[in-house]
Design a protein around this nucleic acid. Structure first.
Length: 349
RNA sequence: GCUGGGGUACUCAAGCGGCCAACGAGGGCUGACUGUAAAUCAGCUGGCCUUGUGCCUACGGGGGUUCGAAUCCCUCCCCCAGCA
């Protein structure tokens, strides 16, 4: 019998109220790959996630600002959350250098080095027109050398959060409360419970609108991740939303929601969709490229209400389109997967 | 008909006496992907099984040389180019 945790039922943003729990499709470069905004919205998505690092490199936040901001640029009317570039500290570990000031990344396209500081990350996100701005954090991996610096990374993440808040306040000082974007802090700590507790307490002591759990699902076992979520669950501030960054496997979302999490984002529904994988009732996964679907006339999931399943696209069509490399297959499967995750959230509301 | 080039696995294509069941690419099959360096990446892809420094069958067909042939020789069949 899972314990129930006090939680909020919605999140207010300057672009409207968002019902919780909710899942955010990943639109790293400003668009959910292969889908237009109407398709994303119809699948049940309320908020989009875009990335500071990628948009800074291309086309640049100044360009986007000139073009009316990210909402106008990408034609998405709902709220947008921007990740700070913190995840790239982890995912681009081979081409970055961390200093206390910030992180130097080597842009692989141009060969040039770019510096992202907490202040810079705030400025970029502000210029993009983000509705939910994420603090710039230092995310460590699980390799031995990375583990050794977990504590250092937590401390740095905290120092950076203070700098983020200061810069955020400076940037938003002339903005009315109702029109101000939100700022979320991120806690770190790897698989160390003491560090995690310390980090959560620190973030919740700061002037942030939401609390994000970072640094999970980076290669640890599912059991380890669940242990940590269980450990943190009783300690959340009931007045603030909790965002588990990067999670999007259905069973993981269910576990997390049952342990107090309100928000999610993940590349799985869209990346998986483009690669042929689709979730079906029971949280099972289908690989639509498999030869067994070659003559299957049924939809991906009979019980699904998404555009793709309702329209009657057959598994056989998917198998065929994936084989011949038609991107329509990836788009339709992405719609289905996004809807699947949104339905999980809707069931819990 | 003559001269030259060529026929290699599902396809294209390397190899030109032993390290070859045969490079590479495509295709096929399977798998991975959790704040997107990802429409990407990895493995397998002649048959059989007791999965092995294992056995069989294989580089157009047949024959030969050799301890050993996809690789050399003879012959036949087919394709391509040029000339009659």
């Amino acid at each position: 019998m899972p314990k129930t945790y006090k939680r909020r039922f919605f999140l207010n943003t300057r672009r409207g109220k968002v019902l919780t729990p909710f899942f955010m499709p990943v639109a790293t470069r400003g668009a959910v790959k292969g889908l237009n905004p109407a398709q994303v919205k119809t699948a049940g998505s309320q908020v989009l996630l875009a990335n500071t690092y990628h948009l800074h490199i291309q086309p640049g936040e100044k360009v986007i600002k000139k073009l009316g901001g990210l909402h106008n640029f990408s034609r998405w009317e709902g709220p947008i959350l921007t990740d700070s570039g913190g995840f790239q500290v982890f995912s681009l570990a081979k081409i970055r250098k961390i200093t206390d000031d910030g992180v130097y990344f080597k842009n692989l396209a141009s060969g040039k080095e770019i510096l992202i500081t907490p202040e810079k990350s705030m400025q970029i996100q502000f210029d993009l027109g983000s509705d939910i701005i994420m603090a710039f954090d230092d995310l460590t991996g699980l390799s031995l050398t990375e583990r050794k610096r977990t504590e250092e990374a937590v401390e740095r993440t905290h120092r950076w959060l203070v700098r983020c808040i200061k810069e955020f306040k400076r940037l938003t000082k002339d903005i009315k409360q109702s029109e101000r974007p939100l700022l979320f802090g991120i806690l770190q700590g790897g698989l160390d419970k003491k560090l995690r507790r310390k980090s959560l307490e620190f973030v919740q002591s700061q002037e942030v609108d939401g609390v994000a759990i970072g640094g999970l699902a980076v290669g640890e076992t599912r059991r380890d991740m669940y242990d940590m979520l269980e450990f943190l669950a009783p300690m959340y501030d009931p007045k603030r939303v909790r965002y588990l960054m990067g999670i999007g496997e259905p069973k993981d979302m269910r576990f997390s929601i049952e342990h107090g999490i309100d928000m999610f984002d993940c590349v799985l529904p869209t990346r998986g969709g483009r690669h042929g994988s689709a979730w079906i009732t029971g949280d099972k996964k289908l690989n639509l490229e498999n030869s067994i679907f070659g003559k299957d006339p049924g939809p991906i999931d009979k019980k699904c209400d998404c555009y793709t399943c309702k329209t009657g696209y057959s598994r056989a069509l998917f198998r065929h389109l994936f084989k011949v490399g038609d991107p329509l297959a990836g788009s339709l499967a992405s719609i289905h997967n996004l809807r699947y995750l949104s339905r999980i959230c809707e069931d819990y509301r």
